[in-house]
Design a protein around this nucleic acid. Sequence first.
DNA 1: CTACATTCGGTCCATGCGTACGGAAAAACG
DNA 2: CGTTTTTCCGTACGCATGGACCGAATGTAG
Lengths: 226, 226
Amino acid sequence: MSAGDARSRKRAPGAAYDPRMAERPDPNDHPPRRSFIERARRAQIVEAATQVVAELGYAGTSLARIAEKAEISKSVITYHFENKDEILRLVVSQFFERGWERMSGHVEAESTASGQVRAWIGSQLEFYAEHRAEFLAMSQIMANHRTPEGSPAFAGELTEEVDALTEILQRGQRDGEFRDFDARGVATIILRCADGVLGSWAVDDSTRLVDQIPALLDFVDHAIRR
Amino acid sequence: MSAGDARSRKRAPGAAYDPRMAERPDPNDHPPRRSFIERARRAQIVEAATQVVAELGYAGTSLARIAEKAEISKSVITYHFENKDEILRLVVSQFFERGWERMSGHVEAESTASGQVRAWIGSQLEFYAEHRAEFLAMSQIMANHRTPEGSPAFAGELTEEVDALTEILQRGQRDGEFRDFDARGVATIILRCADGVLGSWAVDDSTRLVDQIPALLDFVDHAIRR
DNA sequence: CTACATTCGGTCCATGCGTACGGAAAAACG
DNA sequence: CGTTTTTCCGTACGCATGGACCGAATGTAG
């Protein structure tokens, strides 16, 4: 019934698809089983998929169009990847990984809580501004990708972000930098605020995102400062 | 080439599809050409489509599933509607119309600018909280629906909202209620802030939206007040 | 040449949107 | 009330696309 329950997967070039791989693409424990060509192809295909999703949207993305964009045949894709789902997950997780890396560096460099909040939002938006296609693809996939049963596939990805920001806000409250408010609720609001600004930039690239950043930082600053 | 350029539309029960109809579903000038049955069917189908989009997402929405949800045959849909596009546009425009009606009432009842801002955000979010499925469907369609050429179909729907809020903010600045800031930029931020909070509610209905409203109102209040 | 990795064209099956057509239901008419 | 005409709706189909897959062809290394 369900396609691919006990498929006799030909001679998989990579291992059979393991959902955990999507979150730990750094195989330090498992030595990199992938050949040079395979790593290059996978990167190329993920890159092409990113562009297609950004241009044509989630619904407009098919293996055929990814292949066309990468100028390869469709079956090269199905040879190197288990299925479409694996590709889309990689688009999202790779983008998150790089963004988080960049952000956490900027945040940890700050000493005050308000500085960390500014660094958080500022570096996040800067990173997105520099990678518009990746951002568009990521948000398209996050918003649309579903499990076979129909529920959103990337539901709980944000809670850890909220947790981290909540901690910063609480520290700022203890140190007297911020006024009194529900830290967790405000953390959610701030993050969603940034998402919102990104949303308007997503549909209209004429709004120069980097120009909006100071305004948003100011806005948040006034909102939480004592 | 393009399908449906000069189709000899069988014996259309309603007139041939006119895009303006989507925005003026109140045919007071044109007497209601639609029969009782037809109006009932159209409402039923739009309602079913709303539920399907909310549950299965934009990509998971097909005429077959809408028909299944409405417990009718697929061709009933294609008989009463020109195509899928017309249905989805109605889902969005009807929701906007009702929401705007509700909001504008609350806003105009306030005299101060800050009161109007609070009324704006508050009534908007309340309305959405009361119509979760419609909201989910609307945002899914807005985010995903594309023209045949691939560009987003609902790009410029927000500018008039921004314009209206900008005017309120500027009045508040003249009256000394608000501090000095770029009114248009902040208007965008505020609206997108609300969208963002709605976004987190969209993926996780356990967050009681109505409980977040006061926090958001406070947040915005502190951010813009002198 | 052999063995294996990679790529291509083409096939298969499911799904999607829209249409054709005939029959039921309702309305119009006698 | 019966008949005709219009409106409405279900079954079946056409045509296109999508994802997955296979066998054959090509490349590559020993």
